[in-house]
């Protein structure tokens, strides 16, 4: 599964803003953090704003704020703003779709699609940030352990 660039930027922006709900971040801040073009992010932020997930704060020190419900918004909700996820094109006019092999392949692709949808529909912004925080904590613990070992030597 490969997400389009705009989808990925949308996920980055929403997650970064939701991680700092009290802060206002500029497009440049977000672009710099994820090493992407600020221009590219512009259209993405507009789409997220239209979907009610972020709001633009005008004036000095303005930027964007997360305005969605982090417990209720899933990764799939964000992805759906930009693209429809399917492992294979569901278009029945594709050649070979109505053959026995085409239909058997559809069954397998359907299984993959169901798994992808179940996963992305069940992970909220809040849960993803919890996973992120857990990884950061584990990494910090590992780093301290390595540092202690190094100091011992």
């Amino acid at each position: 599964m490969k997400l389009q660039r705009a989808t990925l930027l949308g996920l980055y922006a929403v997650l970064e803003l939701a991680d700092q709900p009290e802060e206002q971040l500029s497009r440049t801040d977000i672009a710099r953090k994820f090493d992407v073009s600020s221009n590219h992010l512009s259209k993405v932020m507009r789409e997220l704003g239209r979907a009610g997930l972020v709001e633009a704060v005008r004036g000095v020190g303005g930027g964007y704020k997360f305005s969605g419900n982090a417990k209720r918004t899933t990764l799939m909700d964000v992805i759906s703003i930009f693209e429809s996820l399917q492992v294979d094109c569901p278009d029945s006019r594709e050649p070979g779709k109505d053959t026995a092999i085409g239909m058997a392949l559809d069954l397998v692709f359907g299984e993959i699609n169901e798994t992808i949808h179940a996963t992305l529909n069940s992970i909220s912004i809040d849960t993803l940030l919890m996973i992120k925080n857990r990884s950061v904590k584990a990494q910090n613990t590992e780093d301290s352990a390595t540092l202690e070992e190094t100091e011992t030597f």
């Binding site: 417990k71 899933t74 169901e114 798994t115 179940a118 996963t119 529909n121 069940s122 992970i123 909220s124 809040d126 849960t127 919890m130 996973i131 857990r134």
Partner: peptide
């Protein structure tokens, strides 16, 4: 059940992963 997104979300929010 894969289609039970509510229950899947609950277990995920408790830190459970595939």
């Amino acid at each position: 059940v894969r289609q039970n997104h509510e229950l899947l979300s609950f277990f995920r929010s408790q830190g459970m992963m595939a």
